[in-house]
Simulated assay, not measured.
Amino acid sequence: MRLNTIAAAGIGLLVGIGGLAVGGGTAVAEPNFQLPFPCAQTWEGQTRTGHSPANAVDFNRANDEGDAVVAASSGTVSRVANEGSTSYGRWIEINHGGGWTTRYAHLSAQRVSVGQGVSTGQTIGNVGNTGGSTGAHLHYEQRLNGAAVRAKFNGTTALYWGTKSYKSTNGCGGGSGNPYDAEQVCGSGYEVVDSAALGTKGRVYLTYNSGNGNNCAVTMKHTKLGTASASSAFLEVEGAARSTDSGSYAYYAGPVRKAAPGKCVKWGGSVDSETYTSRFEHCG
């Protein structure tokens, strides 16, 4: 786990009661915060008493620099700042109402602007190594009335203190209305290992079958369900030709399956004009 030290201005005093901060405002019901990463991604989250603020969470996974960071809950962007080579570096704050905010620091890129409304699971930036950081990771905070509180993900409080593996359920298709899911389309034994949103129109998934060693890419539509419309899914093994399933489909494009022993894969897809292409990743 690569660590960092934060000395950001404006960090308030925390007085903890049952995981909520008591300060200048009245405690209110918190949003249903999700992990700040796309559906099905697994990240190691670390908390430690020497962190500043102590209730922040540092997230890492292998080769994570440049990975997408998404909104943990819907809200309005309240800060997009750059502290240079100190403190948070490039960071974003989202106001979720009722005194609740989230902060995302050490970003390599910021993809939203102040005043912009964002939805849960929307990409807001990319993991980086800016500011007072000693290696690429995401520094994440949940705050109430200006004070950092113990983070919760999908209603469960994070581990304090130590390191824990978390699997994101952020944007996993709940409420999409599609009667199919990625694992069902790819077939028995496949489990989702990564995904990316295609705006509000769909989501592309990468799944893996540990039994036969095959990867599978599939794009699930969230709009125009039951009506044939342009959709695609592709999978490319490093050093080999890309395989693509593209056409007019009612519910999904794919599945596209490939074995990639000892190699990295590039995956992606599209629904109408919304597209996604990964870098080469998920190696091995």
Results as ranks from 00 to 15, higher is better:
Lys221Tyr: 08
Gln184Met: 12
Val70Lys: 06
Ala241His: 02
Ala40Cys: 11
Arg90Ala: 04
Thr219Phe: 07
Asn215Cys: 04
Trp267Asn: 09
Val28Leu: 15
Ala7Met: 00
Ser74Gln: 15
Ala7Pro: 00
Gly135Trp: 08
Asn82Arg: 13
Ser119Ile: 05
Ile92His: 07
Ala105Trp: 05
Ser188Met: 14
Leu3Thr: 08
Thr169Asp: 10
Val28Lys: 15
Gln34Ile: 01
Ser85Arg: 07
Ala109Trp: 10
Ala56Pro: 01
Gly187Leu: 06
Gly131Thr: 06
Val28Gln: 13
Asp194Val: 01
Tyr249Phe: 15
Tyr208Leu: 09
Leu107Ala: 11
Ala81Trp: 08
Cys186Ala: 13
Thr157His: 05
Ser119Trp: 00
Gly25Leu: 06
Arg279Thr: 15
Gly146Glu: 11
Phe234Leu: 15
Thr156Lys: 10
Ser85Gly: 03
Pro36Val: 09
Phe59Cys: 08
Asn60Phe: 10
Ser188Tyr: 14
Asn60Arg: 11
Ser231Phe: 09
Val112Gly: 04
Val256Met: 09
Ser246Leu: 05
Arg203Tyr: 06
Tyr249Gln: 08
Gly247His: 07
Val149Cys: 09
Ser232Pro: 00
Ser133Ile: 14
Asn154Met: 04
Leu14Gln: 01
Pro261Gly: 05
Thr156Ser: 13
Gly16Thr: 15
Gly12Gln: 12
Gly117Asn: 12
Thr156Asp: 10
Val256Pro: 10
Trp91Ala: 14
